[in-house]
Amino acid sequence: SDEELKKRIEELVRRGNKDEARKLAENANSDEARKWWEKLEQL
């Protein structure tokens, strides 16, 4: 689900694993996940 995906992306970003988070968001084929990633990346 998008919610689970967003949690995983956020967790990866928090751990400093941005590349992994980006790949996850891009491969998810989910606009919501991509937007979430872009938002987190700004922080």
Rank of each mutant, 00 (worst) to 15 (best):
W37H: 03
Q42L: 11
W36L: 11
Q42K: 13
R22T: 03
I9L: 09
E10I: 10
E3Y: 11
A28L: 15
E26Y: 12
A33M: 15
L43G: 09
E26C: 04
E10A: 10
R34G: 03
E32V: 10
N29T: 09
A25Q: 02
K18W: 15
K7G: 06
A25R: 01
L40P: 02
N27S: 14
K18R: 14
E32C: 04
A28Y: 06
R15A: 14
S30W: 09
W37K: 03
S1P: 12
R14T: 07
E32H: 06
A21W: 01
A25L: 14
D2R: 08
Q42E: 09
N17K: 13
N29A: 11
R34Q: 08
K18F: 15
D2I: 15
K39S: 12
N27Y: 10
E10Q: 07
G16W: 01
L24G: 00
E4N: 07
L5V: 05
E26M: 13
D19L: 06
A21T: 00
K23L: 12
N17S: 08
W36E: 03
L12C: 07
D31G: 06
K23E: 11
S30G: 05
W36A: 04
K7D: 05
R14E: 07
K39L: 14
A33W: 14
E32Y: 09
R14V: 08
N17A: 12
K18I: 15
N27K: 12
L43K: 08
N27Q: 14
D31W: 07
D31M: 09
K7S: 10
K7R: 14
N27R: 10
L43W: 10
R8V: 09
E11V: 04
N27T: 13
S30N: 10
A33K: 02
K18A: 07
S1L: 15
Q42Y: 09
E41K: 10
E38N: 07
E32G: 05
R22W: 13
A21L: 08
E41A: 14
R14D: 05
K35P: 01
D19M: 05
L40Y: 11
K18H: 14
K23Q: 12
D31Y: 08
S30D: 06
V13A: 03
V13I: 14
L24C: 05
G16A: 01
R34Y: 12
E4F: 07
L40T: 03
R8C: 11
L12W: 02
L43N: 08
E3L: 11
E10M: 12
N17E: 15
W37L: 15
L24A: 03
E20T: 03
D31I: 11
K35E: 12
A25E: 02
R15M: 14
Q42N: 09
Q42M: 12
D31K: 06
L40E: 03
N29S: 09
D2P: 08
A21V: 01
N17L: 15
K18C: 12
V13E: 01
R14Q: 10
R22A: 09
E20G: 05
W36V: 04
A21H: 00
W36K: 01
D2H: 11
E3Q: 09
K6A: 05
A33S: 04
A25M: 14
E20I: 04
N29E: 11
A28V: 09
K39D: 10
W36Q: 03
N29H: 10
D19R: 04
E26F: 12
A21N: 00
N17M: 15
N27M: 14
R8A: 10
I9W: 03
L5K: 00
W37A: 06
E3H: 10
R8H: 07
R34N: 04
E32T: 08
S1Q: 11
K39F: 14
K39E: 13
L43Y: 11
E20M: 05
W37E: 03
E4Q: 08
R34T: 06
L24M: 06
E11Y: 07
D19H: 05
A25W: 11
V13Y: 15
I9M: 06
K39N: 11
E4T: 08
L24T: 02
R22N: 03
L43H: 08
L43T: 09
D31E: 13
L40I: 10
E20Y: 02
L12T: 01
S1W: 15
W37M: 13
K23Y: 07
N27P: 01
E41M: 15
A33G: 05
A28N: 04
K35D: 09
E26Q: 12
L12M: 05
E38H: 07
S30H: 04
K35N: 08
R8L: 13
L40K: 03
E32K: 06
A25P: 00
E32P: 05
S1K: 12
R8W: 12
A33N: 03
